[in-house]
Computed example of a mutant assay.
Amino acid sequence: MSVSLDSLDTRILDALQRDATEPINDLAERLASSKSVVWRRIQRLIDAGVIRERVAILDPKKVGLEVLVFAQVKMSRHGRDVLPKFVEAVRHFPQVVECHSLMGSVDFLLKILVRDVKDYESFFWNQLSKIDGVQEISSSISMTQFFSTTRIPVQTGAGGKD
């Protein structure tokens, strides 16, 4: 369920997506609002689940994760317990940074970060391919990442105040 956002909410969210460490005083001044209003808005956005977490975004290459792999996983069966068990299994692999279920010819798309191709090969054979129900894995290695962002486009919601 989406949350109705007004223009101040969207400006706050845009600013926080750029730098969540900006002091409330500076943010309020920049947005031409009061500190208490901005603080209350942020708390409301947290309580509503719009802001899930505040994190530091790391550069994978600077911490030794040189290879980005997209793995498409096809399951051999689709029983009630097979798909959730797969999700739970990959959730515990630190190499898997995203897991998406898909409609179409494959069941899951995984975004995986590893040190090198040898590291992925080991992960592939010793962990990923051994998960119960995995039939086929098709892996693509990213050669160049032209851009990446965690920012999402936030717009004023219907029914919101502008």
Score class of each variant (00 low, 15 high):
residue 30 R to E: 14
residue 31 L to T: 01
residue 31 L to Y: 03
residue 32 A to Q: 12
residue 32 A to Y: 09
residue 33 S to W: 12
residue 33 S to N: 13
residue 34 S to M: 08
residue 34 S to W: 03
residue 35 K to E: 15
residue 36 S to P: 00
residue 36 S to I: 12
residue 37 V to M: 08
residue 38 V to N: 02
residue 38 V to S: 04
residue 45 L to I: 05
residue 45 L to K: 07
residue 46 I to M: 09
residue 46 I to A: 01
residue 48 A to W: 09
residue 48 A to V: 01
residue 49 G to F: 10
residue 49 G to V: 12
residue 49 G to D: 09
residue 52 R to V: 06
residue 52 R to Q: 09
residue 55 V to Q: 10
residue 55 V to A: 12
residue 56 A to I: 08
residue 58 L to S: 07
residue 59 D to M: 08
residue 62 K to P: 02
residue 63 V to P: 04
residue 64 G to I: 04
residue 65 L to A: 07
residue 66 E to F: 03
residue 66 E to Y: 06
residue 66 E to M: 03
residue 67 V to F: 03
residue 67 V to D: 03
residue 68 L to H: 06
residue 68 L to F: 07
residue 69 V to W: 02
residue 71 A to Y: 02
residue 72 Q to I: 01
residue 72 Q to L: 11
residue 72 Q to Y: 13
residue 73 V to M: 11
residue 73 V to S: 10
residue 75 M to W: 10
residue 75 M to N: 10
residue 76 S to H: 02
residue 76 S to I: 10
residue 76 S to G: 15
residue 77 R to T: 11
residue 78 H to G: 05
residue 79 G to D: 09
residue 79 G to H: 05
residue 80 R to G: 12
residue 81 D to K: 14
residue 83 L to W: 01
residue 83 L to F: 04
residue 85 K to E: 12
residue 87 V to P: 00
residue 87 V to H: 02
residue 88 E to Y: 11
residue 88 E to D: 15
residue 88 E to W: 08
residue 92 H to R: 15
residue 92 H to Q: 14
residue 92 H to Y: 05
residue 93 F to R: 02
residue 93 F to G: 04
residue 94 P to V: 01
residue 95 Q to W: 03
residue 96 V to M: 12
residue 97 V to M: 09
residue 97 V to E: 10
residue 98 E to I: 01
residue 98 E to P: 00
residue 98 E to Y: 01
residue 99 C to S: 14
residue 100 H to D: 06
